[in-house]
């Protein structure tokens, strides 16, 4: 039953010139799960997320999202994508930005208010984005990604620049969304965030080095914390 997997990635390769950005990636992400993509700079996390939304065309392999082969433009209404760089219209207000992404994704005005509440920007809804702090921009960007209540939420380093208190709140919200059936894929290099994911994929050189719950990953490496586990697993593969 393919439907059990929200995202199904089979043998995906992607080369940029001579560079192997994705080198035979297989991932099976379950519906309602929070999946963490963990890896150093240039590991291929962003490329993998782009392949999931169909922005990067794999050289080989297949990507299936919510039971449909990508690329599939209509299927994108079920997907929310928060880009790594907070991609917003700097000249527009917070509200106008969220309203715009709501409109193109077929969401309603109530959804806008709800999304702004979720990222705690409802008191700044009239502020022009260019005048916001970096973390607030990041929050606005998150609101734009989830305003249409997507079934699959792709978050490329969503908590960079967000203060620790709000980060904790974000993760509570992510967990609540996951509990109500939303599948969330989060990329990160922050280990304490990795700890909060149900399952992790450690990525390096475009390959998945190890996969499993935080506990399983630690056990696999025989270490007591994720940081060491990751260094050990990465080192083992490289040598």
């Amino acid at each position: 039953m393919a439907e059990a997997f929200a995202v199904d990635i089979e043998g995906v390769h992607k080369n940029f010139g001579g560079l192997r950005a994705l080198d035979g990636v297989n991932l099976h992400i379950k519906t309602g799960e929070i999946y963490g993509l963990l890896g150093p700079n240039g590991a291929g996390k962003t490329t993998l997320i782009r392949a999931i939304v169909g922005l990067v065309a794999p050289d080989a392999g297949t990507v299936t999202v919510l039971g449909r082969r990508m690329p599939d433009v209509d299927n994108l209404r079920n997907v929310g994508y928060m880009t790594q760089q907070a991609a917003l219209y700097p000249g527009l207000s917070v509200e106008e930005n969220v309203q715009f992404f709501a409109a193109i994704n077929g969401a309603e005005e109530e959804d806008v208010t709800e999304a702004l509440k979720l990222v705690r920007l409802d008191d700044r809804r009239k502020s022009v984005v260019a005048t916001l702090s970096g973390g607030m921009r990041q929050r606005c960007s998150l609101a734009c990604a989830l305003v249409h209540k997507p079934k699959l939420l792709l978050l490329d380093e969503p908590t960079v620049g967000v203060d620790p208190q709000l980060r904790v709140q974000f993760w509570d919200d992510f967990r609540r969304m996951a509990a109500s059936g939303t599948t969330i894929i989060v990329s990160s290099h922050v280990m304490d965030e990795a700890e909060r994911c149900q399952r992790l994929g450690l990525i390096q050189y475009g390959r998945v080095l190890a996969e499993g719950s935080p506990n399983e990953v630690r056990a696999l490496a025989g270490t007591s914390n994720l940081e060491e586990a990751f260094l050990k697993l990465a080192g083992a593969k490289a040598s």
């Binding site: 922005l55 433009v73 209509d74 209404r77 994508y81 760089q85 700097p90 193109i104 994704n105």
Partner: peptide, 14 residues
């Protein structure tokens, strides 16, 4: 250049 086109392309927009 501000990355919003990437967002538009990851939306149901034709």
């Amino acid at each position: 250049s501000q990355g919003t086109l990437e967002r538009l392309m990851a939306s149901p927009l034709r």
